[in-house]
Amino acid sequence: MKETSSILQSIAQCIERGKVNRASPYPPDLRDRDGADELVRRAIDLGIDPQEILTDGLMTGMKVVGEEFRAKRIFVPEVLMAAKAMTAGMEHLRPFFASSQATHRGVMILGTVLGDLHDIGKRLVGMMVEGAGWEVIDLGTDVAPEDFVAAVERRPESVVGLSALLTTTMMNMKETVARLKEAHPETKIIIGGAPVTVAFAHEIGADAYAPDPPGAVDFLNSTVAEI
């Protein structure tokens, strides 16, 4: 029990600090130590429940990352490293998701709207949402409204996240929201991006606006609570 608690705590710390694996030179003070990669593998080998590894190890670490990011104590680069560590750990858990021994909290379909090639903000949202235990289907950038609709048809239980960085492309959110709501009125839609505001979200009929990635996580978790 003590060993389980200790290794899960170490996994969480690896996510917080962005320690991917033993070979990674970052962060310098953890050089030559095991990272999320090795520790998750070891936790599985010790027989720890994969759901517990996800919830009490990886997700716990990513929750701290989200809080630190929101408080502006860490920045995008640290989140990228945390996400890389998270991905390294998640690789070991994928077979358990496939066999339903571990489950996601829900599904998010994510994409940058038509005409907009910006990726990093949307990817940060995806990383933190995944770190909160959600399955993320990232449609990429420059995604046409019909591609969002098609993706929801494949996974109707999804929440949809739309990103735009430019004032010239944020208006494409409006059409995407309209097309989605027409085809799937029950689908929840959250929008975000530099020029986007809560007023704009209301104006175009989106269900929510998130000013930052943790805000998207909060919204998603609230939809689960509603269910």
Binding site: S24, L80, K84, D119, R123
Partner: peptide, 11 residues
């Protein structure tokens, strides 16, 4: 690529 460049600063 900005993301690649950021990661390279660490690695």
């Amino acid at each position: 690529g900005i993301e690649e460049l950021i990661m390279a600063t660490f690695e």
